[in-house]
């Protein structure tokens, strides 16, 4: 069987997979990291979003072998080693941005990337557009948008500039 070596949440793994194994299957089934979810089979829902070398990707639309040598961060690896939640996780809780929790891991991983890649600021409109790849059937997104806006200052250490929309 083919082998793949990659680092997941800081731990190095070398595992055997079929070539057709998806990255999400490797994470969930081989490594037992079931926080990353699968919500669709057409790459639409974003329940499977993880960070690959720092960028958010849909782990259902990648072969495990394509991740050879990569650094992957999943929802399980987002909080600090001592269990302190990432500010995005904190704000999701504070603003009730999750209900059933199924979309949440992917939503949080996308949101972290969205905030990180917008150091100049983020308007509500940009947040909504930035969540295009993530579906949530429970919340109506209202509180997710609020949580992301609230996480921005915590992640960038300054006040969120008032959007020039």
């Amino acid at each position: 069987m083919p082998q793949v070596s990659l680092t997941v949440n800081g731990t190095h793994h070398t595992v055997e997979v079929e070539n057709r194994t998806l990255l999400v299957e490797l994470l969930r089934e081989t490594l037992g990291l079931t926080g990353t979810h699968v919500g669709c089979d057409t790459s639409q829902c974003g329940a499977c979003v993880v960070h690959l070398d720092g960028a958010s990707v849909k782990s259902c639309t990648m072969l495990a072998v394509q991740a050879e040598g990569a650094k992957v961060t999943t929802i399980e690896g987002l909080a600090a080693a001592d269990g302190t939640l990432h500010p995005m996780q904190e704000m999701f809780r504070e603003h009730h941005a999750l209900q059933c929790g199924f979309c949440t891991p992917g939503m949080v991983m996308s949101a972290v990337d969205l905030v990180q890649s917008h150091p100049e600021g983020l308007s509500e409109h940009q947040i909504r557009e930035g969540l295009e790849g993530n579906l949530c059937r429970c919340t109506g997104y209202h509180n997710i948008v609020k949580a992301i806006a609230a996480a921005w200052p915590l992640m960038h250490g300054k006040a969120l500039p008032v959007a020039a929309e």
């Binding site: 790459s43 974003g46 979003v49 690959l52 960028a55 958010s56 990707v57 849909k58 639309t61 990648m62 996308s110 990337d113 969205l114 930035g130 295009e132 790849g133 993530n134």
Partner: peptide, 9 residues
């Protein structure tokens, strides 16, 4: 094109 995650790949 697509969404940010699609654009990353």
């Amino acid at each position: 094109i697509g969404d940010e995650q699609v654009r990353h790949r």
